[in-house]
């Protein structure tokens, strides 16, 4: 074969053919975002592997860093069948801590609704989320038919679902409006919602607005489960979502003070909103409880002494 013929052949093999103008290009299918298929992650072998990694690696690490105290888990223990766990959301630690709070059997039969645009935007991220936490993609802004159908199908199969109705981690430490996803799924599948309040995770690993900086600082957390909330016929999803938010707010009040005072305030309809006071941004930031503020200076260091032990007051 002559050199030019060899060159011709090489070019023919290496170059993709050009497309005539009149022909439509076949569209490559996007396999990320809400369209990412997660079935593989619920196969028995994968579940087994996930259970081992979760129980022996992830959760021990997270528990060591966040030292969670659990309250009110009995509400869940009495329930057979799937539940939707709805919690406030301020940190990447939240999911793992919620998984740790569930009894092992339920834990290994739970999927986590995760933001499709954040956890499923790349193939590797999607695979990692699906494997390690059993995440399923969820559209965070609106109820997306495809992701809702998928979640509902899983609940009907008997899977419990962890969902953060705020739609994402709070950027400033105060709660955001609870969106209707959890309420909608509960109504559609007629399963109860377990309202949960997580306290202290933001102080360990916050999401912060620029130019503030997120830093990891081990600390203590508290996980409070409230009474199970059942959907009712006469209540639409939006109002049910508000009821879930109120339940989490009550748990929050309880977490900062005590159960009785929180109840009294609830009775007078004075439970403080999760969303914080409606004041200027600096005052909202300033009035964050210490448990949600990673930047709070421990007060009262006696200056003269060489010892730098902080007074944990």
């Amino acid at each position: 074969m002559s050199r030019s013929a060899a060159r011709e052949l090489a070019l023919f093999l290496l170059r993709a053919p050009t497309r005539p103008a009149g022909v439509e290009a076949p569209r490559l299918k996007s396999r990320t975002g809400v369209e990412y298929p997660t079935e593989w992650a619920r196969r028995y072998a994968v579940r087994l592997a996930r259970a081992m990694v979760l129980d022996d690696v992830t959760l021990p690490l997270v528990t060591a860093a966040a030292r969670p105290a659990f309250y009110g888990r009995d509400a869940l223990e009495r329930l057979e069948g799937p539940v939707i766990v709805a919690a406030n959301h301020a940190s990447h630690l939240d999911t793992a801590i919620l998984l740790a709070s569930l009894p092992p059997k339920r834990r290994h039969h739970t999927v986590v609704a995760a933001a499709a645009d954040y956890f499923f935007d790349r193939h590797w991220k999607a695979a990692l989320s699906a494997f390690s936490l059993g995440a399923i993609p969820m559209e965070r802004v609106k109820v997306n038919r495809r992701s809702a159908d998928a979640a509902a199908a899983l609940i009907e199969e008997g899977w419990s679902l962890i969902i953060f109705p705020e739609g994402g981690r709070s950027p400033h430490g105060w709660g955001q409006e609870f969106k209707g996803g959890a309420a909608y799924l509960a109504k559609r599948c007629q399963v109860p919602v377990a309202p949960v309040h997580l306290r202290g995770t933001r102080a360990i690993l916050p999401k912060v607005p620029e130019p503030a900086r997120s830093r990891f600082r081990p600390g203590k957390t508290a996980v409070r489960f409230g009474e199970l909330l059942w959907p009712s016929e006469e209540e639409d999803a939006r109002r049910f979502a508000a009821r879930i938010e109120a339940a989490v707010a009550l748990l929050a009040d309880e977490a900062e003070g005590d159960w009785w005072t929180a109840r009294l305030r609830a009775g007078r309809a004075e439970t403080p909103s999760l969303r914080g006071p409606a004041v200027s941004p600096w005052r909202r930031a300033w009035s964050l409880p210490a448990s949600a503020d990673p930047s709070r200076r421990p007060s009262g260091r006696p200056e003269g002494s060489a010892a730098t032990a902080w007074d944990e007051g």
């Binding site: 400033h172 912060v208 607005p209 620029e210 130019p211 503030a212 900086r213 941004p281 600096w282 930031a285 300033w286 503020d293 990673p294 930047s295 709070r296 200076r297």
Partner: peptide, 22 residues
């Protein structure tokens, strides 16, 4: 720099003001 401001003001003050342009 932000780090210098953070050192002078402490993180709590910095976080409550810097993100909001205050």
């Amino acid at each position: 720099t932000d780090d210098e401001l953070r050192h002078i003001l402490g993180e709590r003050v910095f976080n409550a003001f810097a993100p909001y342009g205050l």
